[in-house]
C-alpha cells in the first residue's frame, strides 16, 4: 500500500481511485491512484523511465483525448468537479490547466503572435489589451528584456532556453490555475535549466504546478511535494524535504539512493 500524506494546503486537484489505460493495452499504465495536488505549491513527479509520469500528467488536461480509445477510470476532481466526465468542456479545461512540454514548441509565427495565440483563441481582439498582456506575460517569464526589440521576429530564431521561456510565457498569458510541466529542462543546458527552475518557483504564487522530472536534484530544489511513481503505481507522496531525507517506503529509499532507475 502506498504512503500518501495529507497535505496542509487546500488541494486544487484530487486524484481519486484513478486509473488510465492506453488504447489497445490490456494493463493500465497508471494503476489505481489517489493523490491530492496542493494549491499554489509545486508537486514533483519522479520515478524511473516508463513508470507513467507523463501518462499521469497528460490526464490532467485530458491530452489523451486527442488520440482515440484511451480509457480513464475513477475521478480527477478539479475545484470539486470531476473533469473526466464526458460532458467536460475540454477547451475550457485546457485554458485553466496549461502545459509545457519536454522540448520547446514555438509556433511557426512571430514572438508576439506566439504569446497572443492563447488569448486570440479566446476571442480577444483589443490591440492595446493584447499588447499589455503579451508584455506582462513576457516579463513574468523573465524573457521580456531579450525579446522586446524583436517581437515581430520569427519565434524559431530564439535559443532553446529562450523558446522554453517563451512557451511558459505563452501558457501563463491565458492565466491558468494549474500548469503542468513535463521535463521542461530535459532539452536545455544547465544555465537555461537554472533559469527555468527559478521561474517555476516564482510562478507558484499564482498557479499550482505539477512538474515531471527525471532529475531528483531538480525535484529537491523546486518542489514542495514529491510523488514517487514506480511501474504505474504512486508509491509515495510526501513533503519534498521529508521524502528525500526520511522516505517512508523502501522502494522510494532505494530509488533516491540510486539503487535502481
Amino acid at each position: 500500500m502506498a504512503t500518501i500524506i495529507n497535505i496542509k494546503e487546500e488541494s486544487v486537484l484530487d486524484v481519486k481511485d484513478f486509473q488510465f489505460t492506453y488504447a489497445g493495452n490490456d494493463a493500465p499504465s497508471v494503476n489505481k491512484t489517489t493523490m491530492p495536488i496542493a494549491k499554489n505549491s509545486i508537486t514533483a513527479l519522479i520515478g524511473p523511465s516508463g513508470c507513467g509520469k507523463t501518462t499521469l500528467l497528460r490526464c490532467f488536461n485530458r491530452m489523451h483525448d486527442l488520440y482515440p480509445d484511451n480509457r480513464y477510470d475513477g475521478e480527477i476532481l478539479f475545484k470539486g468537479r470531476n473533469i473526466l466526465q464526458a460532458k467536460e468542456d475540454l477547451i475550457n479545461l485546457r485554458i485553466q490547466i496549461g502545459m509545457i512540454f519536454q522540448k520547446p514548441t514555438a509556433f511557426p509565427m512571430s514572438i508576439f503572435d506566439n504569446i497572443a495565440y492563447g488569448m486570440r483563441l479566446q476571442g480577444m481582439k483589443n490591440k492595446t489589451e493584447l499588447q499589455d498582456r503579451v508584455e506582462k506575460a513576457l516579463k513574468d517569464a523573465a524573457i521580456w528584456k531579450e525579446v522586446k526589440d524583436r517581437l515581430k521576429a520569427d519565434a524559431n530564431g530564439l535559443s532553446g532556453g529562450q523558446q522554453q521561456r517563451l512557451c511558459i510565457a505563452r501558457a501563463i498569458a491565458v492565466e491558468p490555475e494549474v500548469l503542468l510541466f513535463d521535463e521542461p529542462t530535459s532539452a536545455l543546458d544547465p544555465i537555461s535549466t537554472a533559469g527555468i527552475e527559478e521561474l517555476v518557483v516564482e510562478l507558484k504564487d499564482r498557479v499550482s504546478i505539477i512538474i515531471v522530472t527525471h532529475n531528483m536534484q531538480q525535484a529537491a530544489r523546486v518542489s514542495d511535494y514529491t510523488g514517487f511513481m514506480y511501474l504505474g503505481d504512486l508509491i509515495e507522496l510526501g513533503k519534498t524535504e521529508d521524502m528525500f531525507v526520511t522516505p517512508k517506503e523502501k522502494l522510494t529509499e532505494e530509488y533516491i539512493t540510486g539503487k535502481f532507475g
Partner: peptide, 14 residues
C-alpha cells in the same frame, strides 16, 4: 511534429 500540435491543443485550440 505532434508535440507542436499538442501545444496548440493545450492552449485551448480546436
Amino acid at each position: 511534429p505532434d508535440i507542436l500540435k499538442e501545444s496548440a491543443y493545450a492552449l485551448g485550440g480546436t
